[in-house]
């Protein structure tokens, strides 16, 4: 099943069409706010080609042979890092994994020194995860290598959002007009922010659902600096007629910082349960960026149920990240 999210993504074949396929113009991937629908479409199509490679008995192509890709993680992560690592290796790149720590006593120099070192060592691309919003932007201004944001603070996680879009696109004919509900800790979620950018650019209607203490300031604001979304604290109402439901991981420390009275109360009012999911359309799909706290933000029956595409997200993640590495490399051959 192939779909065309927006007309301009794939011009109608024929003599009358003068449109060119979208040109890839990103040196870095920092967030989806500077992606057009056409560019997102290009990522989707390139991911299709990567899925085909992943279906082969030997899942390896020489596209990035001789390129060095560094994963620089200031925060622990298993799935995002291994997904990038597999993507890079499938394209025959050399991968170096580095763990780092943020130290406020040697701030600044620490991040920029690390990057200067990586560049001196010959990194062509740096995949960075950092607990502080904006760190990849500081980095991208300082280095020649391509920077991929693998999650920065509360701000953005563009490759996760793209794999979510890709997963939705696999199951729905078009993203346009879909009702997508994001349930959970929106305030501290880079996944939610990047998904809001990506989904709205592709024409989906986004509803976010959370207690007001986990809602970022002014999300419902219509001044246009951040895409408009519908906000409701009522999960039954939010899920009504939904095509896609995305549950977010709830960090335990939200209780300690006073944003929630208890995890138990949160689960009682915001857990995605079978009964609540029944409010959504019968063919609604359920996503979760992982790792899942079963029976907190999502009932284990839903996480493992027939509507869950959580494992598909993981598989798709490798293909989407392969597509992004390929597009960033400027390589012409696959």
């Amino acid at each position: 099943m192939r779909i065309t999210p927006k007309d301009e993504v794939r011009p109608v074949a024929g003599a009358e069409s003068q449109e060119q396929p979208p040109v890839w113009r990103h040196r870095h991937i920092l967030d989806l706010d500077d992606f057009s629908a056409a560019e997102i479409g290009l990522v989707m199509e390139t991911s299709d080609a990567m899925m085909e490679i992943l279906s082969r008995p030997i899942k390896k192509v020489p596209t990035l042979r001789g390129k060095t890709i560094v994963t620089l993680f200031y925060e622990p992560s298993t799935r995002t890092r291994s997904s990038f690592e597999m993507a890079a290796k499938n394209l025959s790149a050399d991968v170096v994994n580095l763990n780092a720590q943020v130290s406020s006593s040697v701030k600044g120099e620490c991040l920029t020194d690390a990057l200067a070192t990586l560049e001196a060592l010959g990194a062509d691309m740096v995949i960075m995860r950092h607990p502080m919003s904006g760190a990849p932007y500081v980095a991208a201004r300082r280095i020649e290598a391509s920077m991929i944001n693998a999650g920065d603070g509360w701000h953005a996680h563009p490759t996760q959002a793209l794999l979510d879009l890709y997963t939705i696109r696999q199951h729905k004919t078009s993203l346009k007009g879909l009702k997508v509900v994001i349930v959970g800790d929106i305030k501290h979620s880079r996944v939610a922010r990047s998904n809001i950018w990506g989904l709205t650019k592709m024409g989906a209607d986004v509803t976010v659902c959370c207690p007001y203490t986990l809602l970022p300031f002014g999300l419902e604001d219509t001044r246009g600096i951040f895409p408009e979304v519908t906000v409701t604290p009522d999960i039954e109402r939010a899920l009504e007629g939904a095509d896609v439901v995305m549950a977010l991981r709830l960090q335990k420390e939200r209780q300690q910082s006073g944003l929630l009275p208890s995890i138990r109360e949160y689960a009682r009012y915001y857990q995605l349960t079978e009964a609540r999911l029944a409010e959504a359309k019968a063919d609604a799909i359920v996503l979760h960026p992982g790792p899942v706290n079963e029976d907190i933000e999502i009932a284990s029956g839903v996480a493992h149920g027939p509507q869950s595409v959580i494992n598909r997200q993981v598989t798709n993640g490798v293909a989407v990240r392969m597509a992004l590495l390929y597009l960033l490399s400027g390589s012409k051959r696959l």
């Binding site: 943020v102 701030k107 502080m132 919003s133 904006g134 760190a135």
Partner: peptide
């Protein structure tokens, strides 16, 4: 000032 925003 040449650092992560939160550390500046």
């Amino acid at each position: 000032k040449l650092c992560e925003f939160a550390l500046a």
